[in-house]
Write a protein that binds this DNA or RNA. Sequence first.
DNA 1: CGCAAAGTTGCCCCATGGGCACATTGCAAG
DNA 2: CTTGCAATGTGCCCATGGGGCAACTTTGCG
Lengths: 236, 236
Amino acid sequence: MCPWGNFAACAFCKSLSVLCYRRIVHIPPGLRERKKAATRRALAEAALELAMTHGMANVTAEAIADAVDVSPRTFHNYFSSKEEAIVSLVGDSAAQLIRGFRQRPAEEPVWVALENATVEVAAKSGAGNDPKTVQQLIFIRENVPVLAHELAMMKETVDELARIVAERTGTDPHSDLYPNLQAAAAMLGTRSAVDIWLADPARTDLVQLIRQAFEQMRTGLPQPASQNGTDEDVHP
Amino acid sequence: MCPWGNFAACAFCKSLSVLCYRRIVHIPPGLRERKKAATRRALAEAALELAMTHGMANVTAEAIADAVDVSPRTFHNYFSSKEEAIVSLVGDSAAQLIRGFRQRPAEEPVWVALENATVEVAAKSGAGNDPKTVQQLIFIRENVPVLAHELAMMKETVDELARIVAERTGTDPHSDLYPNLQAAAAMLGTRSAVDIWLADPARTDLVQLIRQAFEQMRTGLPQPASQNGTDEDVHP
DNA sequence: CGCAAAGTTGCCCCATGGGCACATTGCAAG
DNA sequence: CTTGCAATGTGCCCATGGGGCAACTTTGCG
């Protein structure tokens, strides 16, 4: 039932917002599930909110729990740390990416499918230039402990993408470079694009940057810098 | 004095083994420095040793400190956590890579320089098929908290590599995709290669795998799996 | 030799993280 | 409608993490 395997045993899934999880797996929402999902999401959002306003070091699990009217012990039932709570919010995008990639038509070459799936997610969540989203992305990048958690989650995402690539192409992810390279290159291209975008979200276009990154990876990394005939829109 | 900036302000440097750091920066070793370096390294190695034998969860900072005949408080003066101590050992390779890349002749194209620097490090540290090294790499990959720390360090390494690429090519790492893509692709190719190698260290050649990964990245990611005319040595 | 700088340690405090038992609550079977 | 079950929320408790402080020790240098 898990978007990429079984939910219960998947550490990645556990760290996802349950709301997102249910949206993916289509569980009929009982009262119980709804409350749990609400609590989880509320905790995660409160964690991010508090961390962004007061700084990571000045936020305790207790404060987060209080903000949601829940016992500190309950917070630790959902998340094992502040970092995990915050990163769980970002996990939504990763799950969307995986699901989107799974659903790409089989005729599409792997690399194109990866690009389209990525662009789809980016268009929904980031390209709207929502200032709050931008702030959050920057905040996560600037906080090493949070970043570490996010990178770990990203690695799991890459592993899963590689598994799907391997299924699609009949290769073995444990002995062939191919699936890992494809998946990791896609993720890393995306990340580079987001990094550049975040430096100036108002004047650059995230989707365009992502497509550029995928294009450069597809055709091979250009040797000299000035040779990549992409653009000079940023600094003419 | 830091291999890529100033040592004191660099979180990455701080997490490095001081022994390695000094080797890079060529500080004349006073008794003080030597003792500190020895303690740091001893702590890191004890941490890894204990964690590998007893499992991550069953090792306390106190146990590590005892193993080195040092107070627990001192352990926390060097490292803020078990994970950090363990990862600091791996940081040596990262520092070597950065230093090696810096010293590559300017005539070499960026991608070639990255490949050669990477192969150089790999040839020294991993390709010897030292079973202990292999065990350590696997252990780190299997322990999520440690892995998270390692990935964070890896990201810092990529950032630094990107800065060097930018210097070499006169591009701006904040607004151009190019430096980030190059650096990240190199790191990721290496990582994929190591992953494949670790699945069967005896029957595969790490350096060869790395060169294959770089080759695939350079020529552009091959669309169909069977099209990458590299080899079929693993599963004929 | 003696002083300043740097490192080590003990002490203390608070936050973390998780095991346990008990209360509570949705849910389903009767 | 009731009653038992299973899953959650909660309080209690404790070992560990992680770091500020101040005393003490060692090292390097004049």
